[in-house]
Amino acid sequence: MRTEVRTTANMNINKNIAISETGFVFNPLTGDSFNTNRVGQEILRQLQKGASIDDLYKHLTDTFSVDKATAEKDLADFFMVLKSYQILIEV
């Protein structure tokens, strides 16, 4: 069974990540729990659906009042953190 969804050229998101409405995130792979804000939830959900980076930019700029440059910068940073928490896994 595939448990990861390919998100970018070399990054997969753990499919079993549980995200609640309150922003509570649980990573069953590591047992860690997290708290994320509205935009963070949105990104994780999109990633779980298999969104590509370009899909994400479009989704963020369509949904939130943010320009592409800011979204790009913030996303790069966010991915780094997700990687360090093993929510995103390099392949």
Partner: peptide, 15 residues
Amino acid sequence: AKISYERPVITKLNT
């Protein structure tokens, strides 16, 4: 209307 934006953040709980 678009939702107001805030940089995405995720923090580990109980750390």
